[in-house]
Design a binder for these strands. Structure first.
Lengths: 122, 122
DNA sequence: CGGGATCCACGCGGATACTG
DNA sequence: CAGTATCCGCGTGGATCCCG
């Protein structure tokens, strides 16, 4: 009783795998989410907002998102330097999908946590 | 120009972080997606369908999903043993959110891949 | 067949120090 | 301020063997 013949096997040919591999990391989705709430943010503002991210990982994450074309990086030529990050059109088109996931998370978090603590699995 | 005052900082109090930490692993979303397409699957069927997952990781993934209450595990008491996995109500409620993400992935995969190869970032 | 138990490599990601 | 460079611990996840 299968619906579509989707090939999940090979990572390269499977968009699901590709996308999930990209945004399955620790910080990407969170950065997109935050940039969706505040439309422009500086590096330090982002870091303070997330709170627990290291400079290195925030830099790496932003670089990847910029490379994917999801985030724009605007540099103001001044001293001290000022850099602002914001979502691109592409990034904005992804935002509602992630927010939809977040909404589900908010609605079902309690139930999942209860299930998990009952089962005893870490 | 911020919208909601969301506290992204502490992982425990932030549903986003919690959910993303759970499903941000390598196989969870894929398993949910496949079980959504085929409503019942045995362990080996799942493994062959994914193709590149090890026994260990599939077992761990299914255990976590079962502990969360997203997947049901039905054991048939016979020799050789037969176990069927399927999505629970909770799992089914998550499915469309993930499929929505997959749809976005399919639509924008090419553009992202192009962007990334142009930028030179791995 | 459906896993559990072990061992181990690799890479993510944190801490720290330094620079334009 | 906005990063880069380096070092390194630790957890994810693969390979292999074993068991009911």
């Amino acid at each position: 009783m299968k619906k579509n013949e989707i090939n999940f096997a090979e990572a390269e040919s499977c968009p699901v795998r590709n996308i999930l591999d990209r945004f399955g990391d620790k910080w990407s989705t969170l950065v997109i989410l935050i940039l969706g709430n505040y439309d422009k943010l500086r590096f330090n503002e982002l870091q303070k907002m997330i709170g627990t991210v290291s400079q290195k990982m925030l830099a790496v994450t932003l670089k990847k998102l910029e490379a994917d074309g999801l985030v724009t990086r605007k540099v103001y030529p001044q001293v001290p330097p000022k850099v602002e990050y914001s979502l691109t059109e592409l990034g904005l088109s992804l935002l509602p999908k992630i927010e939809s996931l977040v909404q589900w998370a908010n609605e079902n978090m309690v139930e999942i946590t209860e299930n998990r603590s009952l089962s005893g699995v870490k």
